[in-house]
């Protein structure tokens, strides 16, 4: 019986040394104890496909397709027909000034713009728009500041166009930001510019003593 106990002890020690402890790092794929229906014959996003030649389940859209089952009456944005809204241009092809119809520049709109700006723009342009984002320390070249006359006087449509399609070394963000979010960022950019041009007149008289004025 002693040998049985010894053999048992050996098995326990061997199992411990082979299997190790919970949470230890491993590059081996997880062991599936009961795989059952874990892997079904269906496609999920960004998975590998053995059927399509490019090896992916996500299929690229053919050119000029539109979603089916919608109408312009129900959704004016559907065909992206509004040049000002979708391309930042007027009917004559110039960059449009002001914000497109249908967008209300409200407090919520600016808050959304700030939220998106700090996620997508601040890494390079800085949270105040001075062009000194964190990436500058890592070798990102001259990121322009928003606080010069060139950009202060730039048409909103041109800023929208830059944001959508990129300019110089900046790549476009049209694939990652919704159209209304891009306009919200344009609005917030205007707010940032305005904030840098504040004067004592912008402070309510009652609050001026707080600033020692």
């Amino acid at each position: 019986m002693r040998y049985v106990w010894l053999a048992f002890l050996f098995v326990v020690v061997a199992a411990l040394s082979v299997l190790g402890f919970r949470g230890s790092l491993s590059t081996r794929p997880p062991l599936e104890v009961f795989p059952d229906m874990d892997h079904q014959a269906k496609y999920k996003p960004q998975q590998e496909s053995r059927f399509f030649a490019d090896g992916r389940t996500d299929r690229p859209l053919p050119a000029n397709v539109v979603p089916r089952g919608r109408s312009v009456e129900a959704d004016p944005m559907y065909l992206a027909a509004d040049d000002h809204m979708f391309r930042g241009k007027t009917a004559t092809g110039e960059f449009a000034r002001g914000f497109p119809e249908g967008l209300e520049v409200s407090h919520e709109f600016l808050a959304r713009g700030r939220n998106r700006y700090e996620m997508f723009c601040a890494p390079c342009h800085g949270r105040t728009g001075d062009g000194n984002g964190i990436t500058k320390q890592y070798g990102m070249g001259a990121t322009p500041t928003y606080h010069d006359d060139r950009i202060r006087t730039m048409a909103e449509g041109e800023i929208y166009n830059t944001l959508t399609n990129g300019k110089n070394t900046m790549m476009g963000y049209g694939d990652r930001l919704a159209v209304t979010d891009r306009w919200a960022i344009v609005a917030y950019l205007r707010a940032l510019q305005r904030a840098q041009q504040g004067t004592v007149d912008d402070v309510k008289p009652a609050n001026r003593p707080e600033l020692g004025l």
Binding site: S24, L25, S26, P29, P30, L31, V33
Partner: peptide, 19 residues
């Protein structure tokens, strides 16, 4: 005890860090 400790995602999945 062994099944409780090892036959669970706490062991099989936690710590998976592929190259």
């Amino acid at each position: 005890a062994a099944v409780t400790y090892w036959v669970t995602p706490k062991y099989t999945r936690v710590g998976y860090a592929p190259t």
